[in-house]
């Protein structure tokens, strides 16, 4: 075989690029493990109520405080409620909050970041001072006040933990926009007479979305953490609705003798957080242009 490259198909294909990016992700075993775990969590989120062998509210006093068994895979609590079913419902609750809160934070942050970066001048100045204020704001305690004011429950939780998190997105996106704003691509968008918003969404955003995806993974981990901490100190959903945080709180408070009630939900939570970070790292490796030349 000659080593002269073929001249017949000199056009690189998108498929090839995708595959090499995937290869870079797979290179990190930790990221792959994280992805597998997150897939399980996603499945639990989507199908939890249908997978659960019991209703989480069902009490079976004949089987109270039992360790893991075939009938109750994660054991039961002092009311004879099935921990496995409660975990499935808890995952669903916490994940929905994390995803929705992240989406809201992203949307708000993207609008503010794009506007500040593209417009510049006093718009940029005002928006970024507001963002700085949000950064400095003790969001966690503000979230507690908000939950007391609005009442507990999912919408208030989403608002409470999402309301300050957009600041990170805004700052990140503004910075990325600034690297592109005076570039040739944006100029060519202006040259065809496109509006600033059109250029921001169609020209700038697709070029910076990689970095945002990575940040999104970390933000989601942060959101889950916040929700869990709020639930742990008693601002979570009210029973019988359960979240990760309330399950951990339950395990930590009145079932001191039954350690599996603490260990199981907490381990699942820790694994989920770590997986999010590992997948975020993997995405960074995969999407970074530097990775391609390594």
């Amino acid at each position: 075989m000659s080593s002269v490259p073929s001249l017949i198909h000199p056009v690189p294909s998108l498929v090839f690029r995708r595959r090499s990016a995937w290869r870079r992700f797979v290179r990190s075993k930790l990221s792959v493990a994280g992805l597998v775990w997150l897939t399980l969590i996603a499945a639990a989120t989507a199908f939890g109520p249908w997978l659960a062998p019991h209703r989480p509210t069902d009490m079976d006093f004949m089987h109270a405080n039992e360790g893991p068994s075939w009938q109750f895979p994660f054991g039961t609590n002092n009311l004879g409620q099935d921990l496995f079913s409660m975990v499935l419902y808890g995952i669903r609750y916490s994940m929905v909050i994390a995803v929705v809160a992240t989406a809201v934070a992203f949307l708000v942050g993207a609008v503010i970041g794009l506007a500040a970066g593209m417009r510049g001048g006093w718009v940029d100045h005002v928006l970024m001072r507001f963002t700085d204020f949000m950064f400095a704001f003790p969001g966690f305690y503000f979230a507690m006040i908000l939950l007391v004011t609005l009442g507990r429950g999912m919408p208030s939780l989403i608002l409470a933990i999402g309301v300050t998190q957009w600041a990170g997105f805004a700052r990140l996106i503004r910075g990325l926009v600034l690297t592109m704003r005076d570039g040739d691509l944006v100029e060519s968008g202006h040259a065809i007479g496109a509006s600033t918003w059109y250029i921001a969404t169609r020209y700038v955003f697709p070029n910076i979305v990689n970095s945002i995806i990575v940040y999104t993974a970390f933000t989601m981990a942060n959101m889950m953490n916040q929700e869990a901490m709020l639930s742990l100190i008693g601002f979570g959903p009210e029973l019988p609705v359960v979240s990760f945080g309330t399950l951990m709180a339950m395990g930590a408070t009145y079932d001191l003798g039954y350690t599996y009630l603490m260990y199981i939900p907490t381990s699942i939570f820790i694994l989920t957080l770590m997986s999010l970070v590992a997948v975020g790292d993997g995405l960074q490796e995969m999407l970074s242009p530097k990775g391609a030349v390594k």
Partner: peptide, 24 residues
């Protein structure tokens, strides 16, 4: 001015690498 740029005045730039939107 935006209604004139690209409609009544066309512009061609020097850079062949960055003048086109890589995602379109």
């Amino acid at each position: 001015l935006r209604t004139i740029r690209g409609r009544r005045i066309g512009v061609v730039f020097q850079s062949v690498s960055a003048g086109l939107n890589p995602f379109l």
